[in-house]
């Protein structure tokens, strides 16, 4: 005996009730439960769908789908970081490295002056405003995508909603930037590191808020063969 379409939909709802929000993991678990239920029916054809479903779910142990959700989250984060790293590396290869060097020099020259503290705050402000603007825009875009498909993909959520998280790490350093004494500009090592930090932060934010979202369709298709099904 095979499961009907409405029973499959019931299983999707069941996974959602058990805190599986993302369609990719839901699909995998639905197929698993469905296989288990059909197998039970081979031995006990009279077993109700509800009973068979609960029996199948029990096999996941007391934590239910929790471990699967957690591990899937970690796996997706790892994948996202890999994309991030691949894109970042490109900025240290030709031709993009020219932009990277120019950016670094801009920060370096600016911070070599006595205005290091106000300038650091100024750049900090520009980056923060841009990131906030982009973050809001991506969030809107994500909501629109949801209206169209009604499915939530873990990687899609990472790309559109958590992209700005690097910005918050950056923001938390505001206090330190504000505290920079004017004579710090005389220390070359400090200047190089400080300018490099700004360059990397600018690049990381640009990649996570602009480059990766613009490649979202490609990355999602690559990660989820079922995305375009």
């Amino acid at each position: 005996m095979k499961l009907t379409e409405s029973q499959i939909q019931d299983l999707y709802a069941f996974t959602r009730q058990h805190f599986v929000e993302h369609y990719d993991l839901q699909t995998e678990l639905v197929d698993h439960l469905a296989n288990d239920i059909e197998k039970q029916w081979q031995v006990q054809p009279k077993l109700t769908f509800e009973d068979a479903k609960n029996k199948a779910f029990k096999k996941f142990g007391i934590f239910g789908f929790m471990d699967a959700i957690e591990q899937k989250g970690k796996a997706m984060n790892k994948r996202y970081m890999r994309y991030m790293w691949t894109e970042l590396k490109k900025w240290f290869e030709l031709p993009q490295i020219i932009t990277t060097i120019a950016l670094f020099l801009l920060f370096y020259i600016a911070f070599s002056t006595v205005y290091i503290a106000p300038l650091a705050l100024f750049f900090f402000g520009i980056i923060t405003v841009w990131c906030t603007y982009k973050g809001i825009q991506l969030n809107k875009q994500f909501r629109r995508r949801k209206e169209v498909s009604n499915k939530k993909w873990m990687l899609e959520e990472l790309i559109f909603k958590q992209a700005g998280s690097t910005m918050f790490v950056f923001m938390s350093q505001l206090f330190n930037v504000y505290k920079i004494p004017d004579n710090y500009g005389d220390n070359t090592y400090f200047l190089v590191l400080f300018s490099l930090a700004f360059t990397i932060i600018a690049l990381v934010n640009y990649i996570s808020l602009e480059v990766i979202p613009s490649k979202a369709e490609k990355l999602l298709n690559e990660t989820y063969p079922e995305f375009s099904l």
Binding site: H32, F60, G61, D67, A68, E70, K74, E226
Partner: peptide
């Protein structure tokens, strides 16, 4: 089941497994 899927997702993230739907 509670151990299998976490293991599969981890192996996939490590690039040892590929998926097909």
């Amino acid at each position: 089941e509670g151990a299998l899927y976490p293991a599969l997702h981890k192996l996939e993230a490590e690039g040892l497994l590929d998926v097909e739907v």
